[in-house]
Structures are given as C-alpha cells and as structure tokens.
Design a protein around this nucleic acid. Structure first.
Ligand code: ZN
Ligand code: ZN
Ligand code: ZN
Ligand code: ZN
Lengths: 145, 145
DNA sequence: ATAAACCCTAAAGTCAACTACAGAGTCAAG
DNA sequence: CTTGACTCTGTAGTTGACTTTAGGGTTTAT
C-alpha cells in the first residue's frame, strides 16, 4: 500500500489540496496518518473516497448528507438497517430536487412569456417586463394561465 | 402624499424593517428623507418599489439585477435604449434558469433510478446507491442511458 | 548549499441576502 | 411623567462550501 502525499491525492482525485484538508476538518475524511515531519499520508482508498464525494455532490447532496452516507458506508453496524437510511436520504434529496425543479419551471414560464412579450426596442416607458414587475398588468394569453 | 414611518411600510409591503434598511444601503431604495429627529419617511411609491423587488426576487433575479432593473425604470435617459437592456437581463435570467433546470433534471433522473433500485432493506453492503456513488457499477436499464 | 516545490497550522475572507444585536434616542398613551 | 412601542446607527453573525493568507518548516534537485 504505497503512501502518497496530499498533493498526489489532490491530482489523482481532482480535489484541491485545501479542500482535502477542509474535508478532513469537516469529518468527511478520517484524520490521515503522518510522517515524522507531520506530512499527511494517504493511500488509494482516499482517492476513492474523494471520488465518492464528488459524485454525491454532483447529485446535489450537501456535505452533511455526504458525511452521513460515508458514515453508513464505514460503519459495520449499519448492516441490518443501513440501506433504509441510505434510501431515505436519497428520497429526501429527490423530493428536494423535484421541488426546486417545480419552482424553477414556474419562473421559466413567466420569464419566457415576458421575454416574448417585450420587443426590446424603445424606451422603458411601457415595457411589459417592467410593467409586470410593477404589478400593473396581467397576462391575457390563454396558454399562460 | 401622506408620509409613513418604516414600520408602516414594512407592514404594507411585507418586507421586514431591517431588510428595508438593508435595501437602502444596497442602493435598491433611494435614501429616504428624514424627520427632524432622524426617522425615515416614506410614501406609497416605496411600497410599490418593495413589491417590485419581491416580484423580481420570486422570478429569480438577484439583488444586483434588480438594482439594475430599478435603475432603468428610474432613469429618464433610458428611453431609446431601456427596453433592450431590460430584455437582455430577462433573457440572461431565463438562460440561467433553464440551465439550472437541466442540471436538476439530470440529478433527478439518477436519483429516481437509484431510489428505485434500492430495496431499502438490509445492510449497506451491496446497496446499489452506495455502489453507484463508489463508482462500482453502471446502469443496465436502457431507459437510463 | 541553495532554490524550487511542497507541506504544515490557524485564522480570516468570500458570496448572497439577509438577520441580529447593542446601546441610545423618540414618540404616544395613560 | 413614565412606561412601552418605535426608531436610529454601526457592527457582527448566519449558511455552505470552500479559498486565501500569513508565516514557517521540509524535501528534492541541481
Ligand atoms: Zn421590455
Ligand atoms: Zn402570457
Ligand atoms: Zn440502497
Ligand atoms: Zn437505470
């Protein structure tokens, strides 16, 4: 098991050095063993762990959630109950994301309507975008209600 | 033009007092005239302005963007060119939001697949969620590629 | 042997959009 | 005339996920 310094792990995982130390402080990585001079030493498992973190982040999990997922993965006592937890965390995140999508789609609908309504020419005087934000007028398009 | 104190405007607009002062500091509201003892005085136009801000926020605009929109609305020199700016800001925001929706939909797809794959029963040992995050396996479902 | 490249810690800074004090002055009601 | 509700300023704290800085040791290569 060849030991690598933090810089090698950073390169191998694509995670900046400072971020690796930050993850250690935050409990996502275990405290690394050190050389006599205090340098952290890592093996391949740390690179895998950092990739795990990166994938989970890409799916929208927060560091706190990722810490929980990693703890479940680490903990041998999480046999028998572990999967239920993991699935619950995943389903909560899915709900989260679906909620965010719905919010954004509402915004998208209004914005695309506004962009469509506004000619982009002339002064701001009777600009339909400004007027809508001012609460002056309502939409008359049937497809927008 | 009846003058109101900040508390009245806060109630009329639904914006907390501290937030109104914050918006003033940030340049979204003009500096309010004061009584001899230093109390800010407002009229109805401020309530309208705060509602404008609230609507714009609900559409995803940042305070910086809202400040720009308000500046265009305020500025009489923004006749002749104003609408182009307003429309550009709106279209940028729409792009923004569509990008976010796409990102979230990618996450949603993966998460719903994972939630579906995982029984939620038993230990974490061969949990498909954990395995996917660990990069062990790829999806075999045709509809998920 | 010396400079470049690397590592260490602790603490502070960043971004957005607020929110929360602390300490003090002001105004309406009883 | 004194509570209590309201307002003021200025500064600091919040959240999340880092990033930066200052100051100082260590390793490697020439
Ligand atoms: Zn317009
Ligand atoms: Zn419409
Ligand atoms: Zn599972
Ligand atoms: Zn699949």
């Amino acid at each position: 098991m060849p030991a690598q310094t933090i810089g090698h792990v950073a390169k191998a995982s694509g995670t900046p050095i400072e971020t690796i130390r930050f993850y250690e402080r935050e409990g996502l990585l275990p405290e690394a063993p050190r050389t006599m001079s205090g340098y952290r030493l890592y093996d391949e498992s740390t690179v895998k762990r950092l990739r795990f973190i990166a994938r989970a982040k890409a799916l929208g999990f927060t560091l706190a959630e990722i810490r929980d997922l990693l703890a479940l993965q680490d903990n041998p006592a999480s046999n028998k109950t572990g999967r239920a937890e993991v699935k619950a965390i995943t389903e909560r995140k899915l709900d989260d994301i679906e909620h965010k999508i719905a919010d954004l789609q509402r915004m998208q609908k209004v914005l695309s309507h506004l962009a469509h309504e506004c000619s982009g020419k002339g002064g701001v005087a009777h600009c339909p975008i400004i007027e809508t934000l001012s609460g002056i007028e309502d939409c008359t398009h049937p497809e927008h209600r």
